[in-house]
Each structure stands twice: as structure tokens, then as C-alpha cells.
Design a protein around this nucleic acid. Structure first.
Lengths: 356, 356
DNA sequence: CCAGGAAATTTACGCGCGGAAAATTATTGT
DNA sequence: ACAATAATTTTCCGCGCGTAAATTTCCTGG
């Protein structure tokens, strides 16, 4: 009924249904343990028998029961990917790239996000543990993380941290070099205009924010300039709104920004700042008639569609994703332990647009 | 070493490690089948025994092996959530809400996204099938979906479609009432200014786009106005860029929009249009000195930070999420089949901001 | 052609749990 | 206090596959 006449069903396989590996082994003329070996690693059997199995696989529809597999296997092919806030397109994008590379590497990735909540993060780690994952790629909440919980998790499960580093936790960290981000933006902004002040949240959730502030101060001092750090109020992960309210307050209560150039800690804050500036008729950009230059860090997927489009320092998404997977792979092969903790950082790439 | 002196380890449980349900049953003084029943449904055992089990659960650390559970249980508590493009904040947000309600309802949700690719969508359904899910919440790709594959999947797995409807497929659909979206925006725009033209992609991926266009035409005609549909070129899911290029082309090659009001099919297109207008110095808004009004549909999470902030018709995210879960719950309880296909649509809420 | 090792097979057991059936115990209403 | 009902216990089997040890078969090179 479901198929139009003349059309074949979706699967062209023989009708005979294979219910378990025993049966599949018999119809393919191979012993079950060998078939089991094949599914564990196709290269571990002789090419001729591999061909026979795969020929049978084409004729009969059979896939090993994933639960029975994972129950008995000492190591599954599951990989957990955890990002702090999946509705943030930045994290969605990095999660996507990592996920893609995971399947390419033969793993079964599963995506998780605590959405900023500490208890959810530990819940995720708990349920992850019960999946006996071969490894986990974890971008922790940061300041809100339960360090002890994560530490204990990393002691049991091969874990590579990414995006935000928790010093000393996990066997490896893969991320971006915050100093490279800030030095490039500060350098550019100071070279072609008034040096920037730095705008950030008062209590940033993410350790990268602290490193960026420190980098800003250090780079400014190295250039013989006076660093000025502006802190806006606000808790949580609604960065755009926090940036917008903060900027409105600065524009109204403090009579504007202290400099004609503002460097935001991250793009989402900058998006809020641009929104506030537009609202108050402050023209942003580097051209004539512009009251303010605004730049930022991350190259958020939306930053090229802001008004004006946002000058920012871009993560090397692909390198981070590649390196994270490769590091996890090495870690798994090494039995879950490295001799010393590995840290790998990638430089930013300055993206010049019209906001600064 | 890992713990500061005086601090207890993270888990206060007794050191005795429980390795299986047999052992846990004995230390809690309950028979294993009863314990098994408890974990399947805590309310299915007498309150007093439930209390005894939960007391033991506090003292000893034990969680049933999830693989052994799912292998033997006729129905798991797994639920698959599939959205077409998870890096789109709109889908990320609806997925998030659905996921939250899933865990509240006692399910184990897992998130998937084919990122616009047909083959990935069918791959996801295949691997979902092997998870023996109790049910699946599926927002299909739409035009790009392999209808036959989805149809066959729905025949085997209780599935509720959401966001985009595939007529006749699945037991139920939960989504938004596109007519309600368009009628509200068109009505508002025509009442307080020049009636809008309608901007959309030439070959929209999503069936909602077709319904919105049809609704636009019908509402305009009902108001005695002439509908004007503008189609912009572009394939894929980079809607902002498609909107931006399309608008630039209209502004440059066609000498501007045919009307002083533009209604975009969705917010992501509108974001691109706003970006193009800003770039070309076209002031958008409903105030003095504005050349164009722009409105749209969806209430994308970023639409309140665009410049100007975007007037749009908002989805009732919460109702859609609630209803989708409730419908799936009913479907599961009904054994995977409804007598007749259920469709539930939710009206939009007009959100007035400054762009129109 | 034969030795030697790699690969495949046979056999057997275990994983941790779900579920059914029959026997036993506890709870409820009257 | 008694029967009727509900909950629990006992006992047993099965799920689908991993894995180990011993044996046999296969392939390679000299």
C-alpha cells in the first residue's frame, strides 16, 4: 500500500530476516566469532573472508545489536561531545565540526549540552559514564563547573577538554590562543586609530574571558598605552542582552565610551553593543561620520551580518576540531593516559569588516 | 590527593561497589525482580518497598547497566530528537525545549541533525532504529527529505513530526499555523503603511515557506490588495547570505524594492536583507527618514538584536514543545498508532519592534 | 614440497538484565 | 477475622554478543 505499483520497497535485501549474528554467520558461511571480529574491526580478518562477509551483508539486512555489543565489549565506540550552550551558534558550529570528524574516525558521537547549568553538567557526565564511552570531548562550563566532579570523571574516562581550559584537569586541552586573538585586534585597532578600551562582563563564565583581559592589558602596556577595562553587569549566558544593556548604560549614564574604539571580549557582547549603538543613533564603523569603532573576538557565525558587519578575530574552527579528534584518538590508543598533560592552542585570524 | 584534606570525596556512598542488580537487591533486602520492576517504573512497587530501595540507593552507588536494560526490554525509554539544521539557533532552541520536556517526562532523549543533507537524514533514521526508541520527534528536512525512507521509518517507530509537515507521513504533526503568522504580519503592515511585498527563496527547502507564500497571496487578495512575490536565488541553508545577496541585487539591479514594505518569509532572510540595507545606506524602520519597512516570521533568537530590531511573528515555542511531547506520549501509550493522523497547529504572536 | 605462523573454527562460558510462572506473603475491605 | 486481592519472592530461561582456549585450516616463503 505504501509503495506505488512497480516501485520496489526501500530495501532491496532478501526477505529472509536475520535476527542475530549466529544466523548471519551461517548464511554467510563464516563462523560467528569471525563475524564478530569483522564487525569489531573489518581489517582484522583476511581480505577474502572480509569480502565474503560484505557480500553477504549486501544480500541480507543485518546489523549487530548495538546494546549487546556495548554490553560485552570492553571498549565501545561511543564518544560524548559536550558543549556548554548548544543554542549558541558558536558552540553549535564547533560541535558540528567535531561530530563530523568523529563519525569519519569511526566513532559514534552523541551531543550533550548543560545549557549553562552546573547540575546538568554533572548529570551529563554521570549518564555519559554509564555509556562506557571510548572517550569524551568536553567543553566545560568554566567558572560554573564542578571541578571535583569533572576531575573525577576525567580520572575514569579518557577526556579531552576543548574551548575552555580547566588547568590540570583532563589529559589534554585543545583550544584557541587567546593572546593571539587579542594581540591582533589591539594591534590593528591601535595602529589605525585610537587605541581601544576593553569591554567585558564583570564575572565572565568562561576562563577565556580572563585570559583575554589579561592579554589586552599586557599588549596595551607593551605598546606603551594605558589599558582601560569596562565591566558590564549581568549573569548568565544572554550575552547579547548583557552587552546591549551595558552599552546603553555607558552611553546614557557615563556620557559615552571613554575612547572612540571599543574592543569587546567576544562577539556576542559586541552584537549587543552594536544593537545599543544603533538604537541610540551612534554610527559605528571606521569611515567618515562614525562615532565609534567596535571590534571583537570569535567570528561568531552571525558577525558578518551585523550592522555594520563586525571586525573580529576568528577561531581556527577546523584546526581545533581536527586536533581535538586526533588528540582523543591518541589518548584512547595510549590507554587513556598521557605522560604529561598536553595543551594545544591555535592562533586567531583577523577578519576585517566594517565595524572597525 | 585529588581532595583537599577534610573534604570528602565527591560520592559519599559506601565503598562497597555494587556490580549488578543481583548484588544491589541483596544489600537492599529486596528480590531482584522487584528491584527490576522498580527501575522500570518506581510507582509499580509498594510505597514501603520503594522507600527501602531508595534508601539503599542513597547508601550504595548503583545504576542499572543501560545496555543490558535496553537489550532485553521490549520498549526502551530512548527518544530521538531530529532537527534539520542544529546550528540554526531557531532549531537549537526548539530542540532544547523539547529535550528538557523529554527528560522531565522520564525519557532519554538524544539529539541528531542531518545538517541539510538527505543521506545524513536517512543515516540518522537507520541508526535511530537500532536504538529501539520508544518514540521519535522528527523535524524533517522538507523538500530534500527521502519521503519513502521517512515513511518506512514511521511505519516501524512511533514518530511525531514537528516544524515541517510531510502530508500523510507519521501519526501526528505538531507545528505552527503559517496562515496565522502571515495574516498577522500582513494585516499589521497594511494597516499602518504601504502593503508589503513578499520576499522568499526561489526554491525553499521547507514546506512552511510554501504555506506562507500561499497565505500571503490569499490574505492580500482578501484585503483587496495586489500580492507581489519576490524570489531570490540561492540553494542550501545559508539563508542570511541568500537574503543579503538577493536584497543587494534588488537594490542595485532593480532600483530598489517595488514597495516601501517588505515581508520576508523568515527571519534569517530578513537578517540578510537588513544587512544589505545597512550596507547600502537604506534606513529601515517605521519612523521618519526611513526608506523601508522590513518584517518577517519566526522570532529567531537574534531578531531582537538586529539593526533595527526586527518586527516579526513569533512561534509559540513552548506550546509546540509541550504538545509534541504530549502527543508522542499519547502515541506511545496507544501502541504507536492513532486512529487518524493528528495535526496540531499553534498560532503566532506578533512581536512589534522597530523594523516595521 | 614442507615447515611455520597467521587466520579461522569449534566449543564453551559469561555479561547484566527482562520476563514468565508458580508459590508465598502482605494488604485491603468488610 | 476472613476471604479477596495485590505485591513480592523463587526459580528458571532467554537475549545477542564478546571473549578465551584449543584445535584445525589456510597461506606464505624458502
Amino acid at each position: 500500500m505504501a509503495c506505488a505499483p512497480g516501485r520496489r520497497a526501500r530495501s532491496d535485501k532478501d526477505v529472509q530476516k536475520i535476527k542475530n549474528m549466529e544466523e548471519f554467520a551461517s548464511v554467510s558461511g563464516i563462523s560467528r566469532p569471525t563475524v564478530s571480529k569483522y564487525f569489531n574491526d573489518p581489517d582484522s580478518v583476511r581480505p577474502s573472508t572480509r569480502a565474503r562477509i560484505e557480500k553477504a551483508l549486501e544480500r541480507y539486512e543485518y546489523r549487530p545489536n548495538i546494546f549487546a555489543m556495548n554490553q560485552n565489549r570492553k571498549m565501545t565506540k561511543n564518544v560524548g561531545i559536550v558543549v556548554p550552550y548548544l543554542t549558541d551558534p558558536f558552540f553549535a558550529e564547533i560541535a558540528r565540526k567535531i561530530e563530523q570528524r568523529c563519525v569519519a574516525a569511526g566513532f559514534r558521537p552523541t551531543l550533550y549540552s548543560p545549557y549553562g547549568r552546573t547540575d546538568h553538567e554533572t548529570d551529563i557526565l554521570d549518564s555519559l559514564r554509564s555509556l562506557k564511552p571510548a572517550g569524551v570531548l568536553l567543553a566545560p562550563l568554566g567558572r560554573a563547573s564542578d571541578r571535583a566532579a569533572i576531575e573525577q570523571f576525567c580520572a575514569n574516562v579518557p577526556t579531552v577538554l576543548f574551548d575552555s581550559n580547566l588547568e590540570g584537569i583532563g589529559e589534554a586541552f585543545v583550544g584557541s590562543d587567546n593572546f593571539s586573538f587579542v594581540s591582533q585586534t589591539v594591534d590593528y585597532l591601535s595602529r589605525f586609530g585610537e587605541p581601544p578600551c576593553f569591554l567585558e562582563m564583570r564575572t565572565p563564565a568562561n576562563p577565556n574571558a580572563n585570559k583575554r583581559r589579561a592579554a589586552y592589558i599586557s599588549v596595551m602596556e607593551e605598546l606603551g598605552l594605558e589599558p582601560r577595562v569596562l565591566k558590564v553587569e549581568g549573569e548568565g549566558w544572554a550575552f547579547e542582552e548583557i552587552g546591549r544593556r551595558g552599552a546603553l548604560r555607558i552611553l546614557e549614564e557615563h556620557g559615552g565610551f571613554p575612547t572612540k574604539t571599543v574592543l569587546c571580549s567576544n562577539d556576542r557582547l559586541a552584537i549587543g553593543v552594536l544593537s545599543a549603538c544603533y538604537e541610540r543613533g551612534f554610527r559605528v564603523g571606521r569611515g567618515e561620520g562614525c562615532a565609534l569603532r567596535v571590534a571583537s573576538h570569535d567570528d561568531h557565525p552571525f558577525s558578518r551580518f551585523t550592522c555594520p558587519s563586525l571586525t573580529t578575530a576568528a577561531h581556527d574552527y577546523d584546526s581545533v576540531a581536527d586536533c581535538a579528534i586526533a588528540t582523543l584518538h591518541d589518548l584512547i590508543e595510549a590507554g587513556g593516559r598521557f605522560e604529561t598533560r598536553v595543551e594545544q592552542l591555535f592562533a586567531a585570524k583577523l577578519v576585517l569588516r566594517s565595524s572597525a
